[in-house]
């Protein structure tokens, strides 16, 4: 377990002047519109067409439902539920086992190859395996998501729990912290920066697996709708689903980043002063 999933250096979406830097996106959108209109290729509808199609698909419902259409209400909530349930379950499993493996060198030595192997299996491979075992549905999708995204959390927690600052450990020993205090007040907090790095990777991976599992074996969800658009040969609808998934990914990233900043404020500050 020497090489945990390494966090790609992150950008800061909320850095100052962000709004003023949005103009390149507008520019690209305008260019996109012009080029697609001129080229008139059916696979690449102009953004305006995509927006109209998105409105048609999802925003034609009654005001009481916030104008969300049945298609939106049928597909968005299940997707989000799967995504978050899977991610949270994987987070819990990953942190618990990560702490265990991080603190027990012997146990880690026994489980090491299994972890490496499990992590290396491309998670979509599980779908054809699980579908005959569990049949199509949410339990099967959740299993896929949990199995696929647990590794970054697990490996990062192991790393974080293993390399607790020696001075922290000794302070805890000198002042006679109990096992529980050591775990809750020393090991877990000092592993949180790593745990969060793992959770962030897992979140984007969970989105990917949510989509795959819905593309392959589902009867609802955004991925399912995407597949339907493909089968119905409806490029604007397909692009619409893509836009929604992209926005979802962006919002998740941003939300996670905000929470992380808050929770780990001590980490950044403590790093700056030393």
């Amino acid at each position: 377990m020497k090489s945990p999933a390494h966090a790609a250096p992150r950008s800061t979406p909320s850095s100052p002047g962000f709004l003023t830097r949005l103009w390149p996106i507008l520019l690209v959108l305008v260019l996109w519109e012009v080029v697609t209109r001129v080229a008139a290729n059916g696979f690449f509808p102009p953004p305006s067409t995509i927006v109209v199609r998105m409105r048609e698909m999802w925003l034609t419902g009654p005001a009481a439902h916030l104008w969300l259409s049945d298609a939106a209400l049928d597909n968005f909530p299940p997707s989000l539920a799967r995504l978050f349930t899977g991610w949270i379950l994987a987070g819990i499993v990953g942190v618990v086992f990560g702490l265990l493996l991080g603190r027990s060198v012997v146990l880690a030595r026994f489980v090491d190859p299994l972890v490496h192997f499990g992590r290396a299996i491309p998670p979509p491979m599980l779908l054809p395996l699980l579908i005959p075992l569990m049949s199509i549905g949410t339990p099967m999708q959740l299993t896929t998501i949990v199995f696929g995204v647990v590794w970054p959390v697990l490996l990062n927690t192991v790393e974080g729990a293993r390399y607790v600052d020696r001075q922290h450990v000794e302070t805890a020993r000198v002042f006679g912290f109990t096992r529980g205090q050591r775990l809750w007040r020393v090991i877990l907090p000092s592993a949180t920066p790593k745990i969060f790095a793992g959770l962030r990777l897992s979140l984007s991976l969970a989105l990917i697996l949510m989509v795959v599992s819905e593309l392959v074996g589902s009867t609802n969800g955004i991925g399912f709708q995407l597949r339907e658009s493909e089968r119905a040969f409806d490029p604007p609808g397909l692009w619409g689903s893509l836009v929604v998934l992209g926005l979802l990914g962006y919002v998740l990233n941003l939300a996670f980043f905000t929470v992380e900043r808050r929770v780990l404020s001590w980490h950044r500050a403590a790093k700056q002063t030393t």
């Binding site: 001075q167 922290h168 302070t171 006679g176 912290f177 109990t178 907090p189 001590w266 500050a269």
Partner: peptide, 26 residues
Amino acid sequence: VVFQDYSRSLFPWMSVADNVSLPLRR
């Protein structure tokens, strides 16, 4: 024990008061 490296001996995720009072549970 008072260690030389205070920045690594105090726990950065706890307030000053918590740092002082936590050992007293024992």
